[in-house]
Design a protein around this nucleic acid. Sequence first.
DNA 1: CTACATTTGTGACTATTATCATATTACATG
DNA 2: CATGTAATATGATAATAGTCACAAATGTAG
Lengths: 209, 209
Amino acid sequence: MRDRLDEILQGIGLERALIDEIKQQGRLLKIVGEQPLISTGVKSGDMPLVISGTLRVMREDEMGNEVFLYYLEGGEACAMSISCCLSNQLSGFKAVAETDAVLWMVPMHLIDDWMSRFQSFRKLIVDSYQARFDELMLTIDSIAFMKMDERLMKYLLDKKQSSGSYEIHKSHEQIANELNTSRVVVSRLLKKLEREERVALYRNRVEVL
Amino acid sequence: MRDRLDEILQGIGLERALIDEIKQQGRLLKIVGEQPLISTGVKSGDMPLVISGTLRVMREDEMGNEVFLYYLEGGEACAMSISCCLSNQLSGFKAVAETDAVLWMVPMHLIDDWMSRFQSFRKLIVDSYQARFDELMLTIDSIAFMKMDERLMKYLLDKKQSSGSYEIHKSHEQIANELNTSRVVVSRLLKKLEREERVALYRNRVEVL
DNA sequence: CTACATTTGTGACTATTATCATATTACATG
DNA sequence: CATGTAATATGATAATAGTCACAAATGTAG
């Protein structure tokens, strides 16, 4: 697993010296699918770096409604946790392992030091923020401009792209939660997509055609 | 105006040496109300730092629909423009001067150098990203969870807070655009709020009670 | 004051989404 | 294969928002 980490850190474009420090100072964390990593209103002293698997990051409001924000995948860092920690704030979001995942947890107090010494690390942080930002923009686009049927289709296609599989193993209920609508609505719209021969429906499974 | 800049830079918590460099290397840009600073699909080589006035930042899609994202006010930096420039990407958004505004434009190529040398500058960038991030989350909250009447009231209250005034000088049409709905809907909901005695309505002006 | 453009008000209708009630189907387990 | 639970399907109805048409009002320039 250390080798995989090395490979990923190189892939991001970090220099040798930094890679060695990261490998020395962090710790490995394995989480199994659907296990929560960060919950709304809790804070952590580490910045997670995804080695393998996928984290699903969501926003949750006071009443427990949640909207999907973005995915974190192999090689991506969760830059949000930085300022969340620097500024001593509570996290406004919730991260759940979408699949089994392996993370490298980096102690927060080292971040600033690395930012001052390594150009590649500054780039990692800024890029990470920007990537999240862009994805949030897409989320806003779809919530603000798209109707539920389009959003649902986009959701299915995004899933397909990120997992590489044509099958989404979720119930209508779970999909409805991620899109912040009701199960009945999702069932109806999926049925419509099925009639249009864009998906095939099974129990706990949707296949994109 | 240089004094005001100095004051603001100190207020952010930057150290003397950095402040001097910023003052030496940047240039002043004045823009008058409603003038666009950044347009969708265009990129700039400077990072703007707001000295006075307010910038309204919006997301625009291909069909010209737009959603309000957040405001940038005195002392705030537009960190988004950094990676937008570093990664050679086009800006996915649009910034308009809400009122007359004075900006200090910092050449992008200095950013990385400052980030390596000044702790306070790293903090400025990270905080700036985080602040925008938090505001985007609030925007998502309101679009995803709130109904139009609540969003309208929130919009009016936010305006009140940011301008300190109880009067919003906008037509129903303009408000509708910022909330991504139609003029008719805004007129109707404002009328309802008026009946509830929460606002008073005039031509091109709404007063929050 | 008059003419005109812009802004605002409202009724009528449609579209989309939410909600409730109630079937029906699929799967796991004994 | 009988049975129970979770998942899915679907009709009926309501709430919310969008659209169109047109009327009324407000402010401005001559």
